[in-house]
Design a protein around this nucleic acid. Sequence first.
DNA 1: CATCGATCTTAGGCGTACCTAATACTTAGG
DNA 2: CCTAAGTATTAGGTACGCCTAAGATCGATG
Lengths: 230, 230
Amino acid sequence: MTVRRQPNPNSESVDNYLKAILALGGPEENRVASNALAQRLGVAPASVTNMLQKLAAGLPPLVEYERHRGVLLSDAGKRRALEVVRHHRLIETFLYEVLNYPIEEVHEEAERLEHFISERFEERIEAKLGYPKMDPHGHCIPAMDGRMPKENSVPLTHVVRKATVVVDSISDRDAAIVKLLRTTGIVPGAQLRVRGRHADGGHDVSIGSSVKVYHLSPEAADAVKIHPPP
Amino acid sequence: MTVRRQPNPNSESVDNYLKAILALGGPEENRVASNALAQRLGVAPASVTNMLQKLAAGLPPLVEYERHRGVLLSDAGKRRALEVVRHHRLIETFLYEVLNYPIEEVHEEAERLEHFISERFEERIEAKLGYPKMDPHGHCIPAMDGRMPKENSVPLTHVVRKATVVVDSISDRDAAIVKLLRTTGIVPGAQLRVRGRHADGGHDVSIGSSVKVYHLSPEAADAVKIHPPP
DNA sequence: CATCGATCTTAGGCGTACCTAATACTTAGG
DNA sequence: CCTAAGTATTAGGTACGCCTAAGATCGATG
Ligand SMILES: [Mn+2]
Ligand SMILES: [Mn+2]
Ligand SMILES: [Mn+2]
Ligand SMILES: [Mn+2]
């Protein structure tokens, strides 16, 4: 029989579950379903259930879990999740600024190292970088105490009419898309003119004052977040 | 019953076993006993036997193991061990030179990170550092192909008469001793005048042309290696 | 050359984090 | 309000890396 025990509270796995719950819950901190977690983490739904039960049974509990109704982060869980996100984004910034990584390669390396650096390492790269507020994808870096300005960008895919918008951030999860967007000139702060939508859900856009029109696949457009239009 | 299977060839544990066999085998690549490994790695002797059997059964085998007669690294095992040592020493140098770590703190951080950095990370910090030959403790950094000049330093504890010697390297394993030696001025390249030996096995030494005499405990003296006397 | 102590291996087990297959729960449509 | 589809949980299992206890082997010594 499978028995539930206390999880190792500092493992890479636990970190990744907490980070995924934070991300999938969104700014409203909605309950997150097991299946959504399973898909995001690339594990079987049964594995998620098992882990959630262990996270909820820990001391302190890292999540609030109710059978069949998904999970929420507890205070302790949210604290740890934000700590890991802070590591992730500081490392990405460091790889980009100090080690001159191409932007599409920073995520994978950060995804591993975020679990293994010490407080000292965190501190030192932050100082070396001059206490940055943003990572190279345009995401806010949580403060040491876990505070972070509220996210209020909207996906480019929500823009349905012609409009001029400013890029807020780029999702870092798909290296090929990050590379494509970089070579196209779609980077945080860039001005984007949305020319129209395609049947397939993609977008036609121009960058800055250029007349050149690029077609973005639905996946690429979904990776772009823009400042909320006025 | 405990069954032997193929080990995960890229785990932190396997890395640490291989590195320990390399270190304990010394420049002559002597066979290494299970108990010696158990002590160095802080695990039970039975755990070592189990792991050695798995390492020997792998494809390719990482060690040559015979019951009751210790292990040797195979070619593949030696290659991996040197790769990890290269990571370790590049990371230490990076923490010291770029992130301004106190020297006594570099080892612990490197001991963890050495298992998780990518080839790209290794490359980039090496370039940033200008392709260093030595880590901050005075140890040679293996080349990318695993080649490394032969070690021929001798322990300070082997010096029994008054003599003037030059420090080659400092063992990084005990942070307290590394700190003590740093504050004393005993660093790679420093000139050391050995004044005499103590009953307890320690040494009395002066640094450079100073007349001040420091007493080194046997443990501290053992952490210091010097250039072979002529 | 027999014995004893040190060293090493085998046997059996545990915790973490995964898996598949079977079962249970929830909810939307009819 | 009943049922089927989709979602989630339970049951049973594996690999890894560690543990303790018990038994085997080795080698120095008398
Ligand atoms: Mn991660
Ligand atoms: Mn990121
Ligand atoms: Mn290590
Ligand atoms: Mn070192």
